[in-house]
Amino acid sequence: MELTPAELTVLGLVIERPQHGYDLEQVIEQRGIRQWTDIGFSSIYYLLAKLERRGLLHVPEAPAAPRSRRVLHPTDEGRRVAARTTLALIAEARPHPQPLLVGVANLSLLTHRQYEQALRTRLAQLEARIAAIRAAQHAQGPLPDAAGEVFSYSLKLMDAERQWLATRVQVSRDQQERRQDRLQEDA
């Protein structure tokens, strides 16, 4: 991969519309980009400087304004590298780390009740996150196609996880009810 996800995100936003670091921060915040990539507020200027040093961004005219107000533009090479990296990320199915799976792989460390409570907690958090992302999506008004696709994909993934969690919590509840029924029958 030629660019990290954070580099590609920043470069892509500048390709979408030339802007300076503060503008980027606003777009990142408005679109909820930190929900799916690691771009801290303090790393925006670092990423911009790195992309500029690599010749992927440039400032057409040297402004008298402070460094934070320099409007960056993509170079032709920046557009080419961004397009290649974008194609690779979309086309290649790559495994990605999922901390939930690490937790599930260690179920033997928990009681059944602890696991069920953790699933319920995660489900509640996920439902709140879905609601927040939907609210952010609707607050945006018309979005560029790419931003709309990010919202769509993210919400579908979260909905799939929500369905899995609801099923697991229900299975757990059903198991408890069956156990209670057996205990009552044995009594």
Results as ranks from 00 to 15, higher is better:
residue 159 D to Y: 09
residue 160 A to T: 08
residue 54 R to K: 15
residue 54 R to V: 02
residue 69 R to D: 09
residue 176 Q to N: 09
residue 98 Q to A: 13
residue 150 V to K: 03
residue 18 P to N: 05
residue 19 Q to R: 15
residue 144 P to R: 07
residue 118 A to C: 06
residue 97 P to K: 10
residue 45 Y to R: 14
residue 111 T to S: 15
residue 171 V to K: 11
residue 165 L to N: 02
residue 180 Q to A: 15
residue 171 V to P: 00
residue 36 W to E: 00
residue 130 I to N: 04
residue 122 R to W: 07
residue 16 E to S: 13
residue 15 I to R: 07
residue 35 Q to D: 15
residue 19 Q to A: 15
residue 19 Q to F: 01
residue 170 Q to F: 06
residue 115 Y to T: 13
residue 115 Y to H: 14
residue 167 T to G: 12
residue 178 R to D: 10
residue 116 E to M: 07
residue 56 L to Y: 11
residue 68 S to M: 11
residue 23 D to I: 02
residue 110 L to S: 14
residue 34 R to P: 00
residue 75 T to K: 03
residue 108 S to W: 08
residue 24 L to E: 10
residue 34 R to N: 03
residue 82 A to G: 03
residue 14 V to L: 01
residue 151 F to N: 04
residue 146 A to I: 10
residue 135 A to N: 03
residue 162 R to C: 10
residue 139 A to C: 01
residue 52 E to L: 08
residue 27 V to R: 14
residue 168 R to K: 12
residue 59 V to N: 04
residue 161 E to Y: 08
residue 83 A to E: 09
residue 42 S to R: 15
residue 123 L to W: 01
residue 56 L to S: 03
residue 154 S to I: 04
residue 17 R to Y: 01
residue 153 Y to R: 13
residue 119 L to W: 07
residue 171 V to W: 05
residue 121 T to W: 13
residue 68 S to E: 10
residue 9 T to Q: 06
residue 74 P to D: 02
residue 134 R to C: 08
residue 187 A to W: 13
residue 155 L to G: 04
residue 145 D to Q: 13
residue 156 K to G: 12
residue 4 T to M: 06
residue 44 I to C: 09
residue 70 R to M: 08
residue 159 D to G: 10
residue 70 R to C: 05
residue 89 L to N: 12
residue 177 E to H: 13
residue 63 P to K: 03
residue 71 V to Y: 03
residue 38 D to S: 14
residue 10 V to M: 07
residue 43 S to I: 05
residue 63 P to T: 09
residue 57 L to N: 00
residue 95 P to M: 05
residue 32 G to A: 05
residue 21 G to I: 06
residue 110 L to Y: 14
residue 102 V to Y: 09
residue 48 L to F: 01
residue 149 E to I: 10
residue 51 L to M: 06
residue 15 I to A: 09
residue 155 L to I: 03
residue 129 R to S: 14
residue 94 R to V: 10
